[in-house]
Measured scan of single mutants.
Amino acid sequence: HFTSQQLQELEATFQRNRYPDMSTREEIAVWTNLTEARVRVWFKNRRAKWR
């Protein structure tokens, strides 16, 4: 589960860029205190939901 702060950060990034690269995902991981893998999976799932 994600905190509302984490989701806000993830959503804001998603609005700007639906396909963040590795370095962007790592930055998000640092800001949100999540692993890069969790961030990558979140984006994958979010893109699926967005379609």
Rank of each mutant, 00 (worst) to 15 (best):
Gln5Asp: 10
Glu27Ala: 14
Pro20Ile: 03
Lys44Ile: 14
Gln5Ile: 11
Glu26Gly: 06
Arg18Glu: 05
Glu26Ala: 11
Asn45Met: 14
Val39Gln: 00
Glu11Gln: 03
Glu9Pro: 02
Asp21Cys: 08
Gln6Pro: 01
Thr32Cys: 13
Phe43Arg: 00
Pro20Asp: 02
Asn17His: 07
Arg18Met: 14
Trp31Tyr: 14
Arg46Ser: 02
Arg38Asp: 15
Pro20Phe: 04
Arg25His: 01
Phe2Asn: 02
Val41Asn: 13
Glu26His: 12
Gln5His: 12
Arg16His: 11
Pro20Arg: 01
Thr13Glu: 14
Asp21Tyr: 03
Gln5Met: 11
Phe43Asp: 00
Ala29His: 01
Pro20Cys: 05
Ser4His: 13
Trp31Pro: 01
Phe2Val: 07
Glu36Asp: 02
Leu34Tyr: 01
Val30Trp: 09
Ala12Cys: 15
Gln6His: 04
Met22His: 11
Phe43Trp: 03
Gln15Ile: 08
Arg18Phe: 06
Val39His: 02
Ile28Leu: 12
Glu9Asn: 13
Gln8Phe: 11
Ile28Phe: 01
Lys44Arg: 11
Leu7Asn: 07
Pro20Gly: 02
Asn45Phe: 12
Leu7Cys: 10
Arg47His: 03
Leu10Asp: 00
Phe14Trp: 06
Trp42Cys: 03
Val39Met: 01
Glu9Asp: 12
Leu10Lys: 01
Glu27Gly: 07
Arg47Cys: 03
Val41His: 12
Val30Gly: 10
Arg40Cys: 06
Arg46Gly: 01
Thr24His: 07
Ser4Lys: 13
Asp21Gln: 05
Gln8His: 11
Asn33Thr: 05
Arg47Tyr: 04
Arg51Asp: 08
Asn33Val: 05
Ala12Trp: 12
Ala29Asn: 01
Tyr19Gly: 01
Val41Trp: 15
Leu7Arg: 07
Phe2Gln: 02
Arg18Gly: 04
Thr35Glu: 06
His1Phe: 12
Ala37Trp: 14
Gln8Arg: 12
Pro20Leu: 02
Gln15Ala: 11
Pro20Val: 02
Gln8Thr: 10
Trp31Ser: 15
Phe14Cys: 02
Thr3Gln: 03
Val41Cys: 14
Ile28Val: 07
Val30Ser: 13
Lys49Trp: 08
Tyr19Glu: 03
Val39Phe: 01
Phe14Pro: 01
Arg51Asn: 08
Trp31Lys: 15
Thr32Glu: 02
Glu36Asn: 04
Leu7Tyr: 07
Arg47Ala: 04
Ser23Asp: 08
Val30Glu: 13
Asp21Lys: 06
Gln8Ala: 13
Glu9Ser: 12
Ala12Tyr: 11
Trp50Met: 11
Val41Pro: 00
Asp21Phe: 02
Gln6Cys: 05
Thr32Phe: 13
Lys49Thr: 09
Glu27Trp: 11
Arg25Gln: 03
Ser23Asn: 11
Thr13Arg: 15
Pro20Gln: 02
Gln6Tyr: 03
Arg46Leu: 02
Glu11Thr: 01
Ser23Val: 12
Arg18Leu: 05
Trp31Asp: 09
Ala48Arg: 13
Leu34Ala: 07
Val39Thr: 00
Glu26Pro: 03
Asn33Glu: 08
Arg25Met: 09
Thr24Pro: 02
Ala29Phe: 02
Tyr19Trp: 11
Phe14Val: 01
Phe2Asp: 02
Phe43Ile: 01
Arg16Glu: 09
Gln15Pro: 04
Met22Pro: 06
Asn17Gln: 06
Ser23Leu: 12
Trp50Lys: 06
Val41Lys: 14
Ser4Pro: 14
Lys49Val: 12
Trp31Cys: 07
Trp42Met: 00
Gln6Ala: 06
Ser4Arg: 14
Arg51Tyr: 11
Trp31Gln: 15
Thr24Arg: 08
